[in-house]
């Protein structure tokens, strides 16, 4: 099996897409929010590689073409941001301050817990970008000398967790304004949280996608300072 996968220039991509498709089917059939297509597809591919004894390198040889799209896709996030320009201008103070506070809270809590757990520097910087979108977070982790693969999984699971508990947390804290709800989802749970915010309403969704980009940029700017602290 390993040599078949290794000989193909598309097998890794096909395997990934197939696994994702199964994930979306499971999600539709069950309707459970923890049946996240991305999480399911990651698990399926891992199981496939282990069962058929395919090495990660052979899978990655073709699957890396999927990752290749990540950089232009991240650049594309500028487009929805631009389309929200009017809304952005109107609520600029509340938006920037709350996303800044949220991003700061994320890194402060990761720092505090890393000190508490006695993490190494590499482990600490692996978790630092956990709340932001994978595309930016993995880049940050790599640049700072963390483990990008762990960062990727932590980010994805953070998104799914935020997606599931978001409504409960907002209700419990009396966060009711659609703008505030959207910002809370996007800052804490990036794109996967945004999917939930979109279900709640148009404003929630727009604010959440705005928060993905803004939190990403704020985190990139602050993360270098935090990396030096521990």
């Amino acid at each position: 099996m390993n040599s078949i996968i290794a000989a193909s220039t598309t097998a890794g991509v096909v395997l990934s897409l197939l696994a994702y498709w199964i994930g979306t089917l499971l999600r539709k059939k069950t309707g459970w929010s923890f049946m996240n297509p991305l999480l399911i597809s990651i698990l399926l591919v891992i199981v496939f590689l282990l069962v058929f004894r395919v090495s990660y390198a052979d899978y990655q040889a073709s699957a890396r073409y999927l990752s290749w799209f990540l950089t232009p896709a991240t650049v594309s996030l500028a487009i929805p941001l631009y389309l929200q320009l009017e809304r952005l201008k109107k609520n600029i103070k509340a938006i920037l301050l709350s996303i800044f506070a949220g991003s700061l809270a994320s890194m402060v809590s990761v720092l505090a817990l890393s000190v508490l757990f006695g993490f190494t520097h590499s482990q600490y910087v692996t978790f630092l970008p956990k709340s932001i979108t994978t595309a930016i977070g993995m880049g940050v982790s790599e640049e700072l000398g963390g483990f990008p693969a762990i960062t990727a999984v932590v980010i994805v699971v953070t998104g799914i967790f935020g997606n599931i508990i978001g409504e409960t947390v907002c209700k419990a804290l009396n966060v009711t304004d659609p703008v505030a709800v959207g910002l809370a989802f996007g800052t804490s749970a990036h794109a996967i949280g945004t999917a939930k915010a979109m279900e709640l309403g148009e404003t929630e969704g727009a604010m959440s996608s705005l928060a993905i980009v803004t939190a990403g940029i704020i985190t990139v700017l602050l993360v270098n300072v935090f990396a030096m602290l521990y």
Partner: peptide, 16 residues
């Protein structure tokens, strides 16, 4: 590109 973004994360996460 934004719509298909989730699948782009699969290879890196499988690096687990």
């Amino acid at each position: 590109l934004i719509e298909i973004m989730p699948v782009m994360f699969i290879p890196a996460a499988v690096g687990l």
